[in-house]
């Protein structure tokens, strides 16, 4: 028996995903797209073009702001649950359970209708500088989406903080680092690396939660599609385009997180 079997090196050819049946499927997909452009009605597009761009911008804006604020809240929430004393851990866990146990739509409506009906009863709120903002819908949308993201990510960060090996923290302490420095240089970065793949998925989920804000009159891209539907009585075309927009944004999020993940220098065990 020969010891070294000849290694088969396949000759360079088309990329591995391009198999014969895929060409057929791509042709079917292309035919569907062409049929959609030819036989469906797109004449409303030029009229709503500006509004749609504005809506996309607002969707992305809400997504970015709520994710940034949410993760800032999630780190202390996770830390309190993973390493905090019981009087910090218990409220943090209670907050996460409460938010994760009720639908986001309910929270959104509670804040918007509840607080919205409560605030005007206090004259000092009505005369404060913030009143012009509190009368609009978007602060409530941002608040409830932020709280929701914070609660889900607080749970993720709890696991990530708890998953960092003890030895790393002990080594840092042996080097004489202060507690804050240990947190900043060792604990936090390692926890983030661990949480990153989960955070990517959660951010996509957050994107998919943003259309809910349309129910409280924030004009995001979903709301624009609804308006097109109401004003022109065209049902499917705006919804299909809407689905496409969300898929593209999802693709961008996944791509960005993959870039971020590839920057992690070493694989941690």
């Amino acid at each position: 028996m020969s010891v070294d079997a000849p290694v088969m090196t396949p000759p360079a050819r088309a990329p591995s995903w391009l198999k014969p049946h895929r060409i057929g499927l791509l042709a079917v997909a292309l035919a569907l797209v062409i049929a959609a452009t030819l036989f469906m009605r797109w004449d409303w597009l030029p009229r709503y073009y500006g509004l749609a761009l504005q809506g996309i911008w607002r969707t992305i804006w809400i997504l970015v702001v709520t994710c940034a604020l949410g993760i800032m809240l999630a780190v202390p929430l996770g830390l309190a649950q993973a390493a905090g004393p019981w009087w910090l851990a218990a409220p943090a866990r209670g907050f996460c359970t409460m938010i994760r146990g009720t639908p986001l739509l309910l929270q959104l409506w509670l804040l918007y209708y509840g607080l919205g009906s409560l605030f005007p009863q206090f004259p000092w709120i009505r005369h404060s500088e913030l009143w012009p903002y509190l009368r609009q819908a978007w602060p409530y949308a941002v608040l409830s989406l932020t709280l929701s993201y914070a609660a889900y990510e607080g749970e993720v960060m709890r696991g990530a903080f708890a998953g960092v090996p003890r030895g790393q923290l002990e080594a840092a302490r042996a080097y004489g680092m202060s507690r804050w420095k240990i947190f900043r240089r060792i604990w936090m970065p390692q926890a983030f690396y661990r949480a990153l793949p989960t955070l990517a998925g959660e951010t996509v989920l957050q994107l998919k939660a943003t259309p809910l804000v349309a129910t409280i009159t924030v004009v995001d891209i979903y709301n624009v599609a609804g308006r097109v539907r109401q004003e022109t009585f065209i049902t499917y075309e705006p919804l299909l385009l809407l689905a496409l927009v969300y898929m593209v944004i999802t693709g961008i999020i996944v791509f960005l997180f993959r870039r971020l993940e590839s920057r992690i220098p070493v694989k941690i065990g």
Partner: peptide, 21 residues
């Protein structure tokens, strides 16, 4: 891939209207 990338709300509207139609 498609169902997990598109918001449930959009799918619900799309399937609700398109499906019954």
């Amino acid at each position: 891939t498609i169902v997990r990338a598109v918001p449930e709300l959009v799918l619900i509207l799309l399937l609700y209207f398109a499906g019954t139609d």
